[in-house]
Amino acid sequence: MRTMYFKNNPSILATSSIGGPKETTGALGKYIEIKGEDDTFGETTYEKAEKQMLYTVIKNSIQNAHKEIEDIDAIIAGDLLDQIISATFSARSFDAGYLGVYNACATFTEALTIGAALVDGGYLKSVVCGTSSHFSSAERQYRYPLELGCTRPPQAQWTVTGAGACVLGNGDGVKINCATVGKVVDFGVVDVNNMGAAMAPAAADTLYTHFIETGRTPDYYDAIISGDLGVLGSHVLIDLMWQKGFDISKVYHDCGAIVYKIKEKEYQGGSGAGCSSMVFCSYFYKQLCEKSLKRVLLMSTGALLSSLSAQQGESIPGIAHAVCIES
């Protein structure tokens, strides 16, 4: 069994989200709490800018929950950079415990699962879960220098410059009901530009396992939200689930596919660890609070590659963790 049920209803007490200029002018821009005027956030390097974003959302989510930093037992955070430096360096500024987690772009639901379990079990009273990503820092770590004149292939995605964090604890709020831990799934995709295709099998595996183990069907949910499969990956996931006998197309959304106004059809939408956290902590959390959505399944998806593994010809393993959130 990979699904865990939370008996004591750990809840999301408050969230905070931040986005760069491209994100805040995108389709969901008006829901994002803090709108960055430029994507340096007053820092000298993009790595520091990412740290600044994550620091800001952690601080603001604690404020939004009307708590002090002393009330927070642990910060569970992660990001895409080597040795998760954004998470670590932003946690440096807080007088709280810190658990660094990494599951590429699936880090947000991984953090939520761990946080919810710790709160539910009564081990910790309140924790903050947050993730971030930055286009320019990710681009330089995984791809090419920004000023290099190369074209992006049509299946490429755009790393979201943004971060989101939420405070988990006992109290009124949106409840985390259960979570299904993902499995590393690799179907042999080697194209580093086609993350959606690499992650979709892992998402399908987690979703299928979730439905089988809980006995639920897609109708149970008002929305099933994947992290950053993109337009192409979303189609692939719907197809894969159809083959397994579940029609998710009516309730399915993808954070990456909806975060930008995709003017040019050729791009697949957003990606990155900050993608699902920023979109969930802004748009979907608001919908849950307003009860226009009652039950959602948030499933961040991650591609567990490094630039070294890609150069050594390894295929791209994917992972997805699902968290059921009810208002």
């Binding site: 049509p154 299946q155 179907f187 042999g188 295709a197 692939v236 197809d239 295929s315």
Partner: peptide, 19 residues
Amino acid sequence: QNFINENYLNYIKSVSPRT
């Protein structure tokens, strides 16, 4: 082990957008 799933890769090739 060999992780390559030929069916899936062919399917991906057929749905991926072309330049």
